[in-house]
């Protein structure tokens, strides 16, 4: 992120007139998320606006409307097709978003202790090291296969959780991404913790805080702020890596796209649209994290600090 000029941050609309590019970016975001939310809500409520699985505008209407326009007439058929598949795409995005967010959030709570153990532990540092290298050093797809086909983890999903998704395999995918993502997150957080000055720990100990208390009250609040920019990488990666869940039959975005493609054989068009959807998700994630970084920024900690 080009955040070296932190004071002129983009999250404060009062400070500067937004550029045209910025306006376009925001407008695209509103359209994307408006369409997504509307499609999801329509499905959850059993189709009060349009029947579930149908687009909000009939593909035929799109085609005839565009055919009348001089510049867009050549793409009328394609865009009508995109309109037709859009409800399935939105349905796939739902699982992609849920899997990513849940995996990232749960993984975070494993990653922090892993990182702390790595920096401040003795024996635990080795445990953390072995875990991290094992999970980072083997293919994620292989890990998912082991969890799903090898260990059949789906059978252990507790009853309370198995009602959340139509199929338990979603939980298996989340488990895989949690275990793997925690290892990557731990590396980002470890690097950030190590950049917190040694004197901070000494000062905490000197007023009588224990080592654990000092880490909790002094080191982590600073380290986690430093970690935000690199941690955003993991967010972005996970959005895209979550497509590997398709290989253990989780019907997320990539799975839906592949299904439609093998039905219609319109691979280039479908994967262009799918790619665009992933891009929108990734841009949302980076925008979100930039705002989080601004929100928690403290003078002298992160943001304007050289890394």
């Amino acid at each position: 992120m080009a955040d070296s000029t932190r004071p002129a941050n983009v999250s404060d609309p009062g400070e500067a007139i937004p550029s045209a590019g910025r306006l376009l970016f925001v407008a695209a975001g509103v359209v994307f998320w408006g369409w997504l939310l509307a499609t999801w809500v329509n499905r959850w409520l059993g189709g009060p606006v349009v029947p579930v699985g149908e687009p909000f505008v009939a593909p035929g209407t799109v085609e005839s409307a565009l055919a009348a326009l001089p510049l867009l007439s050549a793409y009328a058929t394609d865009l009508a097709f995109v309109t037709r598949i859009s409800p399935e795409i939105a349905r796939g995005i739902w699982l992609t978003v849920v899997i990513t967010v849940v995996s990232l959030a749960v993984g975070f709570f494993i990653a922090v202790p892993l990182a702390v153990a790595r920096v401040y532990g003795r024996l635990t540092a080795y445990v953390s090291l072995v875990y991290t290298e094992l999970l980072r050093g083997t293919p994620l797809l292989a890990q998912l296969f082991v969890l799903h086909f090898g260990l059949n983890m789906g059978q252990y999903v507790p009853v309370a959780l198995s009602d959340v998704f139509a199929r338990n395999v979603v939980w298996v995918a989340i488990l895989g991404f949690v275990l793997n993502g925690a290892a990557y997150q731990a590396e980002y957080i470890r690097g950030a913790i190590e950049s917190v000055e040694e004197g901070q720990l000494t000062a905490g100990r000197a007023i009588g805080l224990s080592k654990v208390e000092t880490i909790y009250y002094v080191v982590l609040p600073q380290g986690l702020r430093y970690a935000i920019p690199s941690w955003t990488n993991e967010f972005v990666y996970l959005i895209k890596y979550s497509s590997l869940a398709a290989f253990i039959t989780v019907p997320e975005l990539y799975y839906r796209a592949f299904e439609i493609a093998s039905d219609t054989f319109r691979y280039p068009m479908i994967f262009a649209v799918t790619g665009l959807a992933y891009l929108c998700l990734v841009l949302t994630a980076t925008e979100l994290m930039a705002r989080v970084e601004d929100l928690v920024a403290i003078p002298g900690v992160g943001g304007d600090r050289e890394r």
């Binding site: 000055e197 901070q200 000062a203 009588g208 600073q222 002298g300 900690v301």
Partner: peptide, 20 residues
Amino acid sequence: VDELRREVGMVFQDFNLFAH
């Protein structure tokens, strides 16, 4: 040692204020 350090204040050359 934590109890000891409650009773002995320390001021550092580099201040070491909690930056956050």
